[in-house]
Structure formats: C-alpha cells, structure tokens
Design a protein around this nucleic acid. Sequence first.
DNA 1: ATCCTTTGTTGACAGCGTCAACTTAGGAGA
DNA 2: TCTCCTAAGTTGACGCTGTCAACAAAGGAT
Lengths: 188, 188
Amino acid sequence: MSTRENLITQAALLLDKGGDAAVTLRAVAHAVGVSHNAPYRHFKDRNALLAAIAERDFRMLALAFEGTRLGDAEPIQRLKEALGLFIQYGRDYPARYRLLFSDPGIGAAGGSLEAAALKAFTAFAGLVEDAQSTGALPPTPTRELAGLIYATAHGLVDLQAGGRMREQKGLSAAEQGVALLLLLLGAS
Amino acid sequence: MSTRENLITQAALLLDKGGDAAVTLRAVAHAVGVSHNAPYRHFKDRNALLAAIAERDFRMLALAFEGTRLGDAEPIQRLKEALGLFIQYGRDYPARYRLLFSDPGIGAAGGSLEAAALKAFTAFAGLVEDAQSTGALPPTPTRELAGLIYATAHGLVDLQAGGRMREQKGLSAAEQGVALLLLLLGAS
DNA sequence: ATCCTTTGTTGACAGCGTCAACTTAGGAGA
DNA sequence: TCTCCTAAGTTGACGCTGTCAACAAAGGAT
C-alpha cells in the first residue's frame, strides 16, 4: 500500500477513535511510521488529508447505493435498504459522517470531492426513481424528491449523532423517522 | 455588560466572521480587551465558551418559535413562517448554525444547553400541533411528526450550508425542500 | 554517467489551549 | 475602622500543533 493510502487509512482510524481533534498530522504520520512532515509530500495541508478521507468514503457510499440498486427486492424495499445502510454508516462512524457532510473548510478541496459526493447522491436518486416507477412514491420530479429524502435522512442521522434526538427503544430515531417519512409519502 | 457576556458576544462575532477556527480564546479575549487568560475566570475551557454561544442562540430560537405561534395567520402558515426563520438563520449564520447542531464536544456541557435545545424543539412541536389541529397535517403523533419536519429542515439547511445542495433560482433549496415536504404531507 | 523529480528527513517558528502563581479590588464580619 | 476572604484579572510558562525552509537520498530518463 502506498504511503498516501496509508496516511488516509490511519487518519480515518484516528478519526473514528478520537474524533476530529485526534486527527493531527503528527499523530497520523507517526501511526504510518514516517516523519512528522512526510504528509506534506502527499497533501497540501491538513484539510486536504481530511478531504481525501471524505472522498474515499463518498465513493464507497456511491458503490453501496449502486450495489443496492441491483438487488432482487422490490424497488421501494431496495430504497429502504439503502437508507438503512446510510443510517448505519452515520451511527457507526459519526465522526467520519460529520466529516463528509458537516465539515467546513473541506469545500476548498479540488472538485474531485464534490464529484464523489454528487455521484453518491446521483446513485441514491436512481433508487428513488425506481421506487417512483412502481408507484410506491409520488411522481414528484425525481431530483427534488430524492433531495428531500436524502436531506431528511441526513437531518435525522445528524441530529441523532449530536444527541439532539432521543433514542427510541429498538429502532433508532433515524430509522423510525425515515420509515415515517416513507409511510406518509407512500400512503397518500 | 458583564465581561462574561462580552466574551460570548465577541466570540459569536468572530465565529460569524471567520468560522470555528477563528474563535480562539486569545482572539476573543483581545477583542473584549482583557488578557489572554481572563476567559478562564468565566468558562472552564474553549468548549464551554462555544456552548454558551449555542445556549444563547437556542434560547433565541425558542423565543422566535414561541412568538410565531402567537401570530394571526393560519396555523399552517405560522409553521411555514417559523421554518422560514429557521432556514434564514442557518443561511445567514452558517458557522453558528453548525455550532448549535453539528458540533461534537459541546455535548459535554452541563445540561443547560440540552435544556435550551429541547425548549426550542418543544416550541417548534407546538407549531406543528396547531397545524395538525386544523387538519393541514396528518394526525401522526405530534412529537414524531415534529421531529421529522425538524430533521428535514435541518438536513436541508445543513446540506445547503455545506454546498452539497445546489441553489435553485429564487428560493433556496432548503425553502423549496420544506415547501415540497409540506405539500406532500398535506396533499394526502 | 548525469540530472531531475519524487519522497522523505531534520530543524525551526509562531500560535494555540491550558496550568500555575501572583495581584488587586471590594464587600463581610469583627 | 481594620481585617480577611473571594472573585476577577494579570503575567509567564509549558507542550502540542500546523506549516515553512533547507537538506538528503533514490531512481528512472536522457
């Protein structure tokens, strides 16, 4: 594995373990086994390293969505699966999740991060489109409806990660919220 | 005005102007005109100062929601007004908004911050309840429906603040998204 | 055989949060 | 009135951080 990839991996590990503040360039470099300035050969600055983590994870999200779309289940069921994955990702890796969706200062990274983020959303919109084609969701313009569901899922996950949403017994608040949204959208 | 309040005000100003990273204890102290260590007489550490900003703003949000509830317009219209205020707050003060809703490390603050956040949400739920009572929204349990709408608005604002949501012409994506949600919820 | 590019190193710097110790002002209690 | 305690503020120091500059080696292309 290249040093660059090692840096990204170890940085993500530190992020999961100790949150944003734990991702110090020196700690990452030490974890990889290089000097404290080696990361600068691969990343312009700390934000660029964080952006690389985000880009990698957005790509994985996109792949997960695309993979889900190919499943056997009913389209609306596949959409629910994808939303479940999304919520689980946010719950299991809250610091990483917030890096992808709520970190300022990462925006200045080259367009490749934005492209990866857009690709993930586009894959998600495909799932919504499939569900619409079976009448399980209203015929609202796909892009807007997908944006609405995406934003709702994000809002639920983010509020839950911040403790601003109480946990219910059994299902997480986010899972319940998404289920309610789909119910209200589909029952009409 | 007490030094403590001055510290909160200047910190919020710096936050608006330069984002989270600009809120350095030394810069805040300098802006107030005290030594670099004076803030420690009023706040345990940097996070405690940030939490104080968040608490103050949550209180203001709660007041805004409560005030809106007393308006003359139809309940569903008052709810839309409140959502408009919320979105505008997030758009005008994105760094502050993210402090309230997406900042880890603030959770460790005493329960008074959580209480203020809950009060804001409770006021919002009151608006939803009023709208339900006129049949403008489905009779889903109020707390869950309010949580859903709240989370959706938050998700839209947060995605927009992070640039992950394209701006439409005229209305912001968040305003459009909320309108679409209410339409889909109410048209059923 | 030479040279340039990539990758890595060491060393330094200012700025940060935080701790410790000292100073001062002002009110409570005698 | 004198004393003393507490709250508020100060100076100085510490280690850690991101980042810059200068140097070293290694390896393929010419």
